[in-house]
Structure formats: structure tokens, C-alpha cells
Simulated scan of single mutants.
Amino acid sequence: VACFLGGYRLKGFAQRPAVGTRGGILLLWDEDHVCFENVHHGDFTLSAQITIISSNTSFKFTTVYGPTRNNLKDVFFQELKDEKPPLGERWLVAGDFNQIYRARDKNRSNANRSRITHFRNALNFCELKEIHLQNRRFTWSNEQNNPTMSKLDGFFCNEDWDITFDKHILHALSSSLSDHCPLLLANDDGPRRPRSFRFENFWTNMPGFQQVILEAWNKPPQHHDPFLRLFHKLKKTSQKLRVWSRTLFSNAKVQLHMALEIILRLDEAQDVRILSPEEADL
């Protein structure tokens, strides 16, 4: 399941199991680029020591899933404080905190001021500062006609991490699949798109699919070893399918990206005003 979610490129993984539909945390990583060590989890956190192989730079990473019940908030804050690394160690914290630390991070005036203060005190104790989110005010919506919105998700870092990774940029992506919007933390070059082959199930229903498969599979391989023959048949078939799908679905991909861009623009508009019924339908 972890490999499927990671697109079979992020083969390393660690998890904190969910209780029902809540509390689950999954970390996925590319073992060619980063090394994860000392993985451990608490009641609301999953932490690991990360080393970037190319630069041999290490830091502690803690991902969180904060509780929704008020009687567990202080336990969560204490666990976060217990995760604080020794002086001089880089630390990055991210996840769904289910808590705001500023009143302006909610579009309603009924925020619990006491919980805000406790969370802010925990962040100050941990010497964590928030990484600025470039394009959104809020990260969660209850998706009603007049929605309640909050900034429940985020990235925090200490000074040592911030100085080492000084070219980071945090963006919100389209909230097309969840009531939370995904967050992408990258350097200023942006993420590189994966080049791995992905088979789409709906291809089998499209005209020309069978012909592409037959032509690629029946092409005689220049190998006698059965394993090499199989490898080259699969490789040639994937190459032909990739070329075929590009010509067949180029317009669909453009439309998909346009749709995601429209959703993101509506997400951003919803930060400052109520969407019209027509916008909500769209």
C-alpha cells in the first residue's frame, strides 16, 4: 500500500496507524536521495533523523496529527515539547496540528483563546517559527455554503534548520481531493517531475490500445535469455504506451491542469470572501 501511494518511487516508509479514520501518519521517502534513521512515534507524532545523501546534511523531522478533542490538546503540546532536539540540531515539524496559534488563522471569532495561548507557548518553548505559506490564508474548510476555515496545517522549523535550508518555499496546492489543501515545501528551483512509467487502467477501454500492445510485444527482442527477453518486451511496451498516451490525451492533461488551477484560484478567493453559488457549483 505504501509503495502504491508513493508511485513505486518512494520505497522507504514509516507509519503511525490510524484509530478509525483519524490519527494516521505515513512517511514516504526516496532511498536514493535521503536516509531515514531512528524512526519512532508517540501518541500524536512520528519522528525520524533525515540525512540528505548528496550533501550529508542531517536534521530531525517530526510530523504530527494533532487531536481534535480539547481534553487531549495539552497532552499533544507536551509531546511536542518532549520532541525538542538538543541545542544546535536542525529541526523541521509539519502536519495537521488541528490547532491554530493566532486568532487570525480562523475566519470566525469563536476561537478558543486559551488553547491558542497554550499552543503558542509550546512553539516558543520548542523555539519553532512558522514557515510562511505563500498563497493561502487557510488550509482547511468545512466546505459549507458559508464555510468555517482555519489554518490547521503547516510547517515549523528552528533557526538552525532555517539557516541551513535558506531557499525554501512553501505553497498550497489545489484542495481537489480533501477538505485540507496539500502543502508543498521545496527549494526555489521547485520539485522535479518524476519520469517513472505509470499505467492507467482506463487505457484498456480506449481505441488503439490493443494494437499498440500487440505491435510492441510482438517485436522480436535481440536476446536469448528469458529474463532479458521479458525485461525488454516490458520496456518496449511501456515506451510505446507512453508515446501513444501523450498524443491521445494531451488535451485532457491540459484540461486537468486548468481545472486544478481554477480550484486553486477559488480556494484563494474563499480565504477573503464567500463564494457565490455559481462558483461553488463550478
Rank of each mutant, 00 (worst) to 15 (best):
I131G: 02
S54M: 14
D189E: 12
L87R: 12
G95R: 03
L170P: 06
R265C: 11
R137P: 01
S141V: 00
G7L: 12
G12Y: 04
D74K: 07
K253C: 13
A186T: 14
I169M: 14
P226D: 04
A216I: 02
N98D: 01
F44M: 02
E143G: 05
P221A: 07
A94Y: 00
T164D: 08
T68W: 07
F138M: 04
A18D: 08
E261A: 15
M149D: 00
A48G: 15
W161A: 04
G12M: 06
R22S: 12
L183Y: 12
N98A: 06
A48I: 11
Y8L: 05
F119Y: 04
N110E: 15
H33P: 02
L133S: 03
L92C: 04
R113E: 10
T45N: 03
S55H: 09
L183P: 03
W203Q: 09
F13S: 11
I163E: 11
G154R: 10
Q270V: 02
A14T: 05
N201Y: 07
G6W: 00
S175N: 02
S276T: 15
L5W: 07
D179M: 04
L123E: 07
A122T: 13
F13C: 04
K235N: 13
W140H: 10
C35V: 08
C126P: 00
I52V: 15
H33Y: 01
L185D: 01
H41C: 14
D82W: 00
L170G: 05
L133Q: 00
I52F: 11
F209M: 03
Q78H: 06
S109K: 06
N70W: 00
Q134F: 12
L266A: 12
R22I: 03
R137T: 10
S178G: 01
I262D: 14
D153C: 05
D82H: 10
N70K: 06
H180E: 12
F227G: 02
T51E: 09
L230T: 00
Y8Q: 13
S176I: 10
D153H: 08
V39S: 02
A2C: 14
V19H: 13
R246V: 03
N70E: 08
K81Q: 12
R104H: 15
P147S: 07
V272Q: 01
